[in-house]
Computed example of a mutant assay.
Amino acid sequence: MATPRQTIAPDAGAIERIARDAIARLPHAFRAHLGNVVLQIEEFADEETLAALGLKDPFQLSGLYSGRPIGTKSIDDSGTLPDMIHLYRRALLDEWCEGGETLETLVAHVMIHEIGHHFGLSDDDMHALEQDAGHAPG
């Protein structure tokens, strides 16, 4: 029997499920500090976000962390917006089509990178976390 084929692009709900699965496979020490981080799936980053990052093409941004890293938070942060991880569906799908990775691997990679910003991790630390969680891109 043939395996059913994906004939339409994954919607925001599918991207969110993949992202949450990636989170579930992280070590408990990381998951325990993500409860207040909001996961937002959007089609593209808005014009204001792109301009703030110096980007003109919305396909250049597949994910973004907005908030303050855990180590820099203080009591003065009371009343601020929650920390958020934004995943941009269309940019992710475009990158997926252009690359040789599965969508699950790509979304996990972007999620771990953005989670890394939440923890104030370096790029090397993020790469090691991906390796430990079995999410490293091929």
Rank of each mutant, 00 (worst) to 15 (best):
I18W: 05
H113I: 10
A2M: 14
I18A: 03
P4M: 01
G120Y: 02
R31F: 07
F59P: 05
I41R: 10
Q6L: 15
G120S: 03
E114F: 00
H127W: 15
A2Y: 10
Y65D: 03
L93A: 10
R17Y: 08
L129M: 04
P82Y: 00
M111I: 11
E98P: 02
L121Q: 14
V107I: 13
L92A: 13
G54P: 02
S122K: 05
L106I: 12
G71Y: 10
A19G: 10
H117G: 00
I23M: 11
I18L: 04
T80A: 08
F44N: 12
H135A: 13
G67S: 01
L103T: 04
C97H: 09
K56N: 12
D21V: 14
K56E: 14
D132F: 07
A22K: 15
G79A: 05
A108W: 07
L39T: 00
G35M: 03
Q6I: 06
A136D: 09
S78C: 11
D132T: 07
R5G: 10
E98G: 14
G71A: 11
T80E: 15
A32Y: 09
R20N: 07
P27K: 04
S74N: 09
S74W: 06
A9M: 10
L81E: 10
V107H: 01
L26P: 00
I15H: 03
L81P: 11
E16A: 15
L61W: 02
L93W: 01
D46E: 04
K56C: 10
S62C: 12
A108Y: 14
E95G: 10
I112P: 08
A19V: 07
T102S: 13
G67R: 00
M84L: 08
V38Q: 08
G35P: 09
V110M: 05
D94I: 15
I85Y: 00
